[in-house]
Design a protein around this nucleic acid. Structure first.
Lengths: 253, 253
DNA sequence: CGATCGTTTGAGTTTGATCAAATGTGGTGG
DNA sequence: CCACCACATTTGATCAAACTCAAACGATCG
């Protein structure tokens, strides 16, 4: 069971190293593993709360629908993400979550999380931290959609995805699988599918990056980051450990 | 001192009623009250951490700068908001915060927050909740900028602002002060100042809403919300109390 | 072997940006 | 009290990025 939560542990340790007993407590979480097919909803807006989903494998995304049927994808969930942790505190979802590829998700009961956080307050801080990182990503997406051109938006998203997938071991040095169609890229970046298509062709021509058959190949990392104005600081991959400053709470509380 | 944190307490109680001792603990927080002039930065991106700012009065906003000097405002801070709580866990800011009107802010030491959260775990849950509400707002802004027309964006923002200001007692039934210039609205909604101007004139003509002299008057709430596609759910103003379901943690832990 | 979905291409349109300049307004200092 | 300055708002004219509509082409699948 321990191995199921390995990517989650790896992520939380970007915040602060965990104590053994904290790792064990995470590994011991009761959960129901459920498989989802691509395009199946894991969670639907406004549904009754039935637990919290941890993505074990596969790729999901959160999205909001507009009355006219258009869709804005507001975030991605990769392995290790608790994709609807927010219902734990917010009590209802203001958006839905759908699998982009086949997904395995572990459903965790709220009560078990309550117990976990009560027993291990530092874990609750670590989860809080991770939800703040997600917020930082959303903010950066806002800048992306608000102020960048189609080329820049795509370039920026590709930089982000590559880096995030790398941190969970799902990317090579200069390539990775990204199970998104051009239409889904369009929904993410607030562009039309047609325009995404043309821009992707431009990108191929530019020699910086190729996205084809749901596979991303970055030929020239430097130029791509440059074109995108990409600065990975907002991903907090290298977060200074609080322990590097004064420890906020003793490491072995 | 208690009264200083009144708006904060009011906000946190939207999550769950606080125990008296929790309220007292908040009131007893040591803090340095600092005044800021309009357009003065409270916090600059990447600065060394010097504490956490609680907005007591006035109106501030968080923003990101792009290399070309353009600016995206990514959130507003009204009284009761801990506008840079994120540095508490993230250790550095990925954006800056500036006062839009004269602002009074209380600077709180991190160590004091550590102690507060250790002594009152439910408060730490309440703060976590409030940062999730902020995230929800950012997500909605992403939809706003991504998929709505200029008219809709402005209408949506006006609905949100009016409601948020109402909850802290800074708005009347159908009007409120909003200390933003047209340029700042433009930076918020990813529009040009010129286009904001034209759209504001359209809005006046439409009879739904007037924004002039930093004063917002909503003449026709229904039409405005309708035009904006505004659904206030994402603000979680009416959050079901966890206590209304099974209490996550006993009320008087 | 249709059917469905995703990608590609073309043509025409639109929203909102940019550039430039005029007009209003509030504050400061002489 | 007025001259002046800085800044915000308004107006006009032009332009471009991205959208829409429409259709063809290509894979993949039951």
């Amino acid at each position: 069971m321990q191995f199921l939560v390995a990517p989650l542990i790896r992520k939380l340790e970007r915040f602060a190293p965990l104590a053994d007993k904290e790792r064990r407590a995470l590994g011991a979480l009761r959960c129901t593993v459920r498989p989802f097919a691509a395009h199946e909803d894991l969670v639907r807006e406004g549904r009754p709360v039935e637990g919290i989903n941890l993505v074990l494998g596969g790729f999901a995304c959160r999205y909001k629908l507009l009355p006219d049927g258009r869709r804005q994808i507001v975030g991605f969930c990769v392995p290790g993400d608790m994709c609807d942790l927010r219902v734990y505190l917010l009590r209802r979802m203001d958006h839905s979550i759908v699998a982009m590829s086949p997904v395995n998700a572990a459903l965790i009961e709220e009560g078990d999380l309550d117990a976990l956080f009560e027993a291990h307050p530092r874990l609750s801080r670590a989860f809080w931290w991770s939800s703040m990182v997600e917020e930082a990503i959303t903010r950066e997406w806002l800048v992306n959609v608000g102020h960048r051109t189609a080329f820049e938006r795509l370039a920026h998203l590709f930089c982000e995805l590559h880096l995030r997938l790398q941190t969970v071991g799902l990317a090579q040095e200069h390539e990775c699988d990204v199970p998104l169609t051009q239409t889904e890229l369009a929904d993410t970046l607030a562009l039309s599918a047609v325009h995404v298509n043309r821009t992707l062709m431009d990108m191929r021509r530019s020699g910086m990056v190729t996205f084809q058959n749901k596979h991303l190949t970055i030929h020239d990392h430097g130029s791509l980051r440059n074109a995108a104005g990409f600065n990975p600081a907002y991903l907090y991959l290298d977060a200074e450990r609080p322990s590097a400053a004064k420890p906020a709470v003793p490491i072995d509380a």
